[in-house]
Design a protein around this nucleic acid. Structure first.
Lengths: 226, 226
DNA sequence: GTCACCACCTATGTATACAGAACCCGGAAC
DNA sequence: GTTCCGGGTTCTGTATACATAGGTGGTGAC
């Protein structure tokens, strides 16, 4: 694997996992020595992360991991609504019903799934990821899929703030079920509206969880990664 | 100005202006010597262009300028519809009516404008660009604005294929007028639907112009830039 | 005559060295 | 005490050298 890819993937997952929290200064020499690559591939990795919106140049401190504010989340969801509604619409028009029928059966089984031993809900998040993949596959539009992938990167990072409880996940599964059924039935408008509602509810839940413990991300987080 | 910025802007405008047509192979050494910068900043420029979708790595020939096929245009417009409708909606909700009232008056005057001496229609395209800027300003959403800006890069490149005649521009101006009035009136749904119709008509016109002289972009365009 | 293999060459990927600019700290003057 | 200036240090930006991989062309064998 190329050194620049290695640096990019490592930094990306560290940022998403909050091992590198918002505000972390990413000096080129620090990171290149830490990751064991030279500055040239590291710069490429940082450029890609900047394009992703995970890092940004702050006034006079160089590159820092971007903050996740309440406003950011709202803005992100405005874009997300536009893109995911369109994706749902197109998936309903073009998707293979059999694929979404199979996913429907899995979403029906989610309440039972959530009772099982899986503290991190990995099985559930895996199912949602497979739904996303199926939609990406169905829309067959590289531009749209790329935009959605970029967006999901941010959403995974934000998910850490959500404190998803069992009740919310059960509700989300019901919302997903409506979406999947609409896509399987080829009803594009229903799929779009179901997606709209799902995102509306997800944003509500996210903001409710985020406004309370806001101290987590704000304030002078001057931590440096070493 | 940084050498990498210089290389990026130069290559970007050359690709958009069709001076570097689709299929052109962009070797690192060729371009770095041609542009008078070293390979390091040039690689950064190429990475940015790749992220923009203007160049892509092709099988075994390295980086090439991306092709513009009919399918690409359709896919691009699917994303565009999603993002611009959302932008129009948000602009109607948040925009300053005075700004869009002023633009409305300018769009009313377009038929007269098109009669003037301006073979390249620069004045008209300028007005559309100012409308885009006003919408960007009104939506006040950096993620959405960034996505729209990236999209418009491709659209400017495609415009070269459109052969916009006076009739189409007059029609487009009427469509824009409807959009601007809806935004100024704060009617988000009307703004979204007017945008939808405008994009539908624009795509129709583009495809009609593009399917006939398709030989312009296809075929073995093995040209090399030197 | 065609196909396969080998060698050379050119391209990309990486490391490092150097230059310039910006920031920080200390000192001095008002 | 505060502010401004200067030196030093550290960072980014750029250039270049080197290594490796992949592609191409030529030659030989079947």
């Amino acid at each position: 694997m190329r050194a620049s890819d290695k640096a990019y993937r490592t930094l990306r997952s560290e940022i998403i996992d909050w091992q590198l929290p918002p505000g972390t200064v990413l000096g080129e020499v620090d990171q290149s020595t830490r990751l064991g690559v030279s500055r040239t591939p590291l710069r490429e990795a940082l450029a890609r992360l900047t394009a992703d919106g995970l890092v940004a140049t702050q006034a006079g401190r160089g590159l820092v991991v971007t903050d996740v504010s309440t406003d950011n989340i709202r803005e992100l969801f405005e874009v997300r609504r536009a893109l995911e509604e369109q994706a749902a619409r197109l998936a309903a028009e073009r998707g293979d019903p059999a694929v979404f029928d199979a996913l429907e059966r899995e979403f029906v089984a989610v309440p039972a799934l959530l009772e099982s031993e899986d503290p991190a809900r990995h099985d559930y998040y895996d199912l949602v990821a497979r739904l996303d993949d199926a939609i990406d596959d169905a829309v067959a539009n590289p531009y749209l899929v790329t935009a959605l992938r970029n967006l999901r990167t941010h959403l995974v990072r934000i998910r850490r703030l959500a404190r998803d409880d069992k009740d919310r996940l059960r509700e989300a599964a019901r919302e997903h079920l409506t979406i999947v059924r609409a896509i399987a039935a080829g009803d594009s408008e229903l799929a779009a509206h179901a997606t709209h509602i799902h995102l509306h509810r997800a944003l509500e839940h996210l903001l409710a969880a985020h406004t309370a413990p806001t101290a987590m991300t704000t304030g002078p987080t001057e931590r440096t990664a070493s």
